[in-house]
Deep mutational scan, measured.
Amino acid sequence: EYSEEELKTHISKGTLGKFTVPMLKEACRAYGLKSGLKKQELLEALTKHFQD
């Protein structure tokens, strides 16, 4: 599980793409985000969540 700060850091540095799909799905579930099946959809959901 990833902390909010850790995820925000990866988003701001542009390194969230280094996460694997299972890692991204886990992060989306942890924050109650609707997650797609594609890596890009997962990245967009997390990025949008933490930028709002």
Rank of each mutant, 00 (worst) to 15 (best):
Y31G: 02
G14V: 00
T20A: 05
T9N: 14
T9G: 12
S3L: 11
E1A: 08
E4H: 07
S3I: 07
C28M: 06
K39N: 00
K34F: 06
L46P: 04
K38T: 11
S35Q: 07
G32C: 04
E41Q: 10
Y2E: 05
K18N: 15
E5L: 10
E1Y: 14
H49F: 15
L43E: 11
K8M: 12
L33K: 00
E6W: 12
L33N: 00
S3Y: 09
T15R: 04
H10T: 03
R29E: 13
K25P: 00
F50W: 05
T47H: 04
Q40A: 12
G32P: 00
Q40K: 12
A45Y: 01
K39Y: 02
E4L: 08
H49C: 05
E6T: 14
H10A: 10
R29G: 08
G32V: 00
E4A: 08
L43G: 05
Q51K: 08
T15E: 06
S35W: 03
D52K: 15
T20E: 10
L46A: 01
Y31T: 06
G36V: 03
L7P: 02
F19H: 04
E4T: 11
K34M: 08
T20L: 00
T47P: 03
G14A: 04
L16D: 01
K8Q: 12
Y2S: 05
P22Q: 15
R29H: 14
F50L: 06
Q51H: 10
C28Y: 00
L46V: 07
S12I: 08
E4R: 07
A30N: 04
K18L: 13
K38D: 13
K18G: 13
G36Q: 00
E44S: 10
T47A: 11
S3A: 03
T15A: 04
T47I: 12
H49L: 02
H49V: 03
Y2M: 10
Y2P: 06
L24S: 00
Q40M: 14
A45M: 10
E6A: 14
M23Q: 12
E26L: 09
E44C: 09
L46M: 01
R29S: 11
G32W: 01
L37R: 13
G14W: 02
K48H: 06
K48Y: 07
E5F: 10
K8A: 10
E6Q: 12
T20K: 03
T47K: 06
E6P: 02
G32E: 05
K34L: 06
K8C: 12
A45D: 04
G17K: 08
L16Y: 01
Q51L: 02
L16I: 08
K8T: 09
F50M: 07
E41D: 12
T9L: 12
P22C: 03
K13S: 08
K39P: 05
T20I: 00
A27W: 09
V21G: 06
L16Q: 02
S3F: 15
Q40F: 05
T9A: 12
K34T: 11
F19I: 04
S12R: 13
S35M: 06
P22F: 05
A27V: 09
L24W: 00
I11C: 08
A27S: 03
K38L: 11
D52Y: 15
K48G: 12
K25M: 09
Y31W: 13
L46T: 00
E26S: 12
C28D: 01
T9R: 13
F19A: 03
T9Q: 12
T20D: 12
S3D: 12
K34C: 12
L43A: 08
H10F: 10
L24V: 00
E44M: 10
R29M: 13
K13H: 12
E26R: 14
P22R: 12
M23S: 08
L46F: 01
D52P: 04
E4N: 05
L46W: 05
L37C: 11
Q51E: 07
H49W: 05
L33G: 00
L24F: 01
L24G: 00
A27F: 15
C28Q: 02
L7S: 02
G14Y: 01
L7M: 09
E1M: 05
K8R: 13
F50G: 02
K39A: 05
D52S: 04
L37F: 09
L24Q: 01
T15W: 03
A27Q: 03
K38G: 12
E5S: 12
A30R: 15
T20H: 01
K38A: 10
G17V: 14
E44K: 05
L7C: 00
R29D: 14
G14I: 00
K13M: 11
K38R: 11
C28V: 10
K25G: 06
Y2W: 10
Y31I: 08
S12Y: 11
T9M: 12
L46C: 01
K8F: 09
D52V: 06
D52R: 11
K18D: 13
G32M: 02
G14Q: 09
A30I: 15
L16T: 06
Y31L: 10
D52N: 15
T20W: 00
E44Q: 12
P22V: 05
C28A: 08
E6H: 12
F50Q: 05
E41H: 04
Y2D: 04
K48I: 06
K39C: 03
K8W: 11
L7R: 02
E41F: 03
I11P: 00
K48D: 13
Q40N: 13
L46D: 05
E26G: 10
L43P: 02
M23V: 10
